[in-house]
């Protein structure tokens, strides 16, 4: 076996560029996913039946079909309907964010449902509306409980973002493929790509562990 370290060194700046793009689309998708997830998650347990139903359909569809297929749908199928090409960046963030939203919705729902029913009763018995009780009493307590599962979801999303390489979007995985096409250095490049992903996911899990600890020490549960 011949491991070419020079290839690793020379292609590293290009790979890091790709990693930057990966971080960027992950961050954008996370933001979109959390926004969607918060609303869909609350809709899943609200009292308006049609809303509950729509939210359930959303979660079922995006959790029940492969992300890869969703990316193809977004990038290739939607333009057939609208007649307009979609920017790969929009397709990447859109499909990852919408997909992640379904998972975040389930995390939000579980977090809210884990809060003792007596809290809602206490809020309502004081004359607060359902919305006020959610906002001031239930959600603040639920946030603390959803930090660890949200962290897992972000890590999964960062790794899954490699799938958008299939629509030619030049994030880390796609960069790797392009370099290999020129240099044939499969071993060196895939190894480097893996290490870079690992560093990124470990960083997120450290950050989550820190947040978890901070919330548990300077506040009550």
């Amino acid at each position: 076996m011949n491991f070419n370290f020079d290839l690793v060194v020379t292609s590293f700046p290009l790979l890091l560029l790709g990693a930057g793009v990966t971080i960027k689309i992950t961050a954008m998708s996370v933001a979109l996913g959390v926004l969607i997830g918060l609303f869909v998650g609350i809709a899943r347990i609200c009292r308006v039946k049609p809303l509950r139903f729509l939210a359930a359909v959303y979660v079922d569809f995006f959790r029940g079909t492969p992300l890869l297929v969703q990316i193809f749908l977004f990038y290739f199928a939607v333009p057939v309907i609208t007649g307009q090409r979609i920017d790969p960046y929009v397709a990447a963030v859109g499909s990852c964010g919408i997909n992640s939203g379904a998972y975040v919705a389930e995390i939000v729902r579980a977090g809210i449902q884990s809060i003792d029913a007596g809290q809602m009763e206490a809020g309502r018995s004081l004359g607060m509306t359902w919305g006020q009780t959610m906002r001031y009493i239930i959600v603040p307590q639920a946030i603390k409980r959803v930090i660890p599962p949200l962290g897992n979801e972000f890590i999964a999303l960062l790794k899954d973002s490699s799938l958008v390489s299939v629509i030619g979007f030049e994030e880390l995985t796609r960069r790797g493929q392009l370099i290999i096409a020129k240099t044939y250095g499969s071993l060196e490049i895939w190894f480097s790509v893996a290490i870079i992903y690992l560093v990124m996911t470990l960083s997120i899990s450290r950050l989550v562990a820190y947040l978890e600890k901070r919330y548990n020490t300077d506040d009550r549960h």
Binding site: A122, S125, L126, G127, M128, Q141, D219, R220, H221
Partner: peptide, 20 residues
Amino acid sequence: INDVRKEVGMVFQRFNLFPH
């Protein structure tokens, strides 16, 4: 219901204080 609840205080067996 909310109008009535403003006028009716309730104390629960398990207190149900807001822990945060």
